[in-house]
């Protein structure tokens, strides 16, 4: 499977991203638990892209490091960016009306997690989950 580029501009897109991530996770032979963890992380990140980033896109692809297969998902937006990343990652912190668990929770659900962001410069979150 090649990389899949998906727009995120509405609730239906979040569902589509989730389905694409699920399909990639099945192909990479992730266990059911790991599939569910990755899909849930993707759901959180896609919704943040939509809610706080004002929409953007997701890139979903299978990866292979020679030893293991996995799935990488990148979420990009050109929104306001995150001024204080540590605060955003803190459980319970929300600037909206959420539970403030999505970003930190997503980090705990995956194997690799990276945020690239600057105020006024948008946000890119990259996650990877490897098959065991």
């Amino acid at each position: 499977m090649t990389a899949q580029e998906l727009p995120i501009s509405g609730d239906a897109d979040v569902v589509r991203v989730r389905q694409a991530v699920r399909a990639a996770a099945v192909q990479a032979k992730l266990s059911l638990v790991d599939q569910t963890k990755l899909v849930t992380a993707a759901s959180e990140l896609a919704r943040n892209t939509l809610t706080y980033g004002g929409g953007g896109g997701a890139l979903v692809e299978q990866v292979d490091n020679g030893l293991r297969k996995g799935v990488k998902a990148v979420f990009r937006d050109k929104g306001p960016g995150i001024a204080d990343v540590a605060q955003a990652l803190t459980d319970g912190f929300t600037s909206g009306s959420g539970m403030g668990l999505g970003l930190g929770g997503a980090r705990r659900l995956v194997d690799e997690f990276a945020i690239e962001t600057a105020p006024g410069d948008g946000t890119t979150v990259t996650v990877v989950k490897w098959a065991r």
């Binding site: 599939q35 963890k37 849930t40 959180e44 459980d91 668990l101 999505g102 929770g105 705990r108």
Partner: peptide, 13 residues
Amino acid sequence: RPQIAQTIVALGI
């Protein structure tokens, strides 16, 4: 289900 339980715990819900 087990996979949901583990996910809920990891999310911190």
